[in-house]
């Protein structure tokens, strides 16, 4: 019975790791300054925002869903935060808590509509994408500059280790990553997410709390997106309704490149971190070489294709598990025909 081969679960993750290391080494060889710890620290702090949002989205995708509203919620978070502090002069701490609540609220809306009315996640989160973006414009049609001292100190905060500064964003990201990995692997909630992504029907039959978990997953996705938005204000202290337009794609791309299978059930949170790193290194490679930024999108697309093609092929090999078509979630209920 025993066959010696890489466990299928690990193939995408291993591929991600290989790509990430290769990319890092290649970039470093091309631009030696890239190897400096300063650049590495910046790599993390620049991508902390994407990282946090992507970690939240990983749960959603692991559960077999998708969240298109992340980028809009991030933008909404910046708008809300900036307005609350600058216009209404709320204490930043209160503003942060309120912003996180807004994120949770959008997430809850997603989860509730998907769970209670059995709607396709794709459409529901598409609607909230519009909704959150529209709310940004309702708050203000033009960017809101965040100039209060809080935001200045926010941007400078961090751990100074000699010449290297671990920015606040990096630290928060690390915290979120640890919490996420802990939740995914060491709590029943996390395992239920994996189980329902693997086979929702079976998960229900096993008596797992599928419905509750589904809603929670989207709430967490919204929370993470809001937190990502707040952390992004450390780098760019303003709320702009046009922020992060189309970045939901980056988030999903990072998750998929990180080895999470889009049909759900298979993937690792650590993979998502690597996925974001890959995108970040690619970005750096392109900026270091003064290349056209368009290459980022093209290579992202290509990587996405390669990874999804790989997953599709691997998915076909799996015995006993049929491919799920996202469109057919509710259409046909098969009923046992045997006597």
């Amino acid at each position: 019975m025993k066959r010696l081969r890489l466990d299928q679960r690990h193939v995408p993750l291993a591929a991600t790791l290989v790509v990430c290391v290769l990319l890092y080494v290649l970039t470093g060889l091309q631009y030696p300054s890239f190897f400096s710890p300063l650049v590495l620290a910046d790599l993390f702090s620049d991508n902390a925002r994407l990282d946090i949002a992507a970690l939240g989205s990983t749960f959603v995708i692991l559960s077999g869903g998708i969240d298109l509203s992340v980028a809009s919620v991030m933008a909404l978070a910046t708008m809300f935060m900036a307005t609350a502090v600058e216009r209404f002069h709320l204490h930043p701490a209160i503003a942060i808590v309120l912003t996180l609540f807004v994120g949770c609220g959008v997430g809850y809306l997603n989860g509730a509509l998907i769970h209670f009315f059995d709607l396709p996640p794709f459409l529901v989160t598409l609607a909230t994408l519009f909704l959150a973006r529209g709310c940004c414009f309702l708050i203000s049609m033009s960017p809101v500059a965040a100039e209060s001292p809080f935001f200045q100190s926010f941007g400078e905060a961090g751990l100074h280790l000699g010449t290297i500064t671990l920015h606040l964003g990096t630290i928060v990201f690390a915290g979120v990553a640890i919490v996420c990995i802990y939740a995914a692997h060491l709590t029943r909630f996390g395992r239920t997410v994996y189980a329902m992504g693997g086979n929702e029907q079976a998960a229900r039959l096993m008596g797992l709390a599928v419905g509750k978990t589904k809603v929670l997953v989207y709430v967490f996705g919204g929370l993470a997106a809001a937190l990502a938005g707040i952390m992004a204000m450390a780098n760019i202290p303003s709320g702009d309704p046009l922020n992060y337009l189309g970045q939901e794609l980056d988030v999903i791309a990072a998750v998929v490149i990180g080895g999470t299978v889009l049909t759900g059930g298979v993937g690792y949170l650590a993979g998502t971190v690597l996925g974001v790193l890959i995108l970040g290194i690619m970005q750096d490679f392109i900026t270091f070489g003064n290349r056209d930024a368009a290459w980022t999108q093209i290579t992202t697309g290509l990587l996405l294709f390669v990874f999804v093609a790989m997953q599709t092929v691997l998915g076909r090999w799996k015995p006993g598990q049929r491919q799920k078509l996202w469109t057919r979630r509710t259409s046909t209920q098969s009923i046992g025909i045997t006597s």
């Binding site: 395992r191 994996y194 693997g198 086979n199 029907q201 998960a203 096993m206 059930g265 015995p319 598990q321």
Partner: peptide
């Protein structure tokens, strides 16, 4: 048809 989660 085994009602388990194949990916776990």
């Amino acid at each position: 048809e085994v009602n388990l989660i194949p990916s776990l």
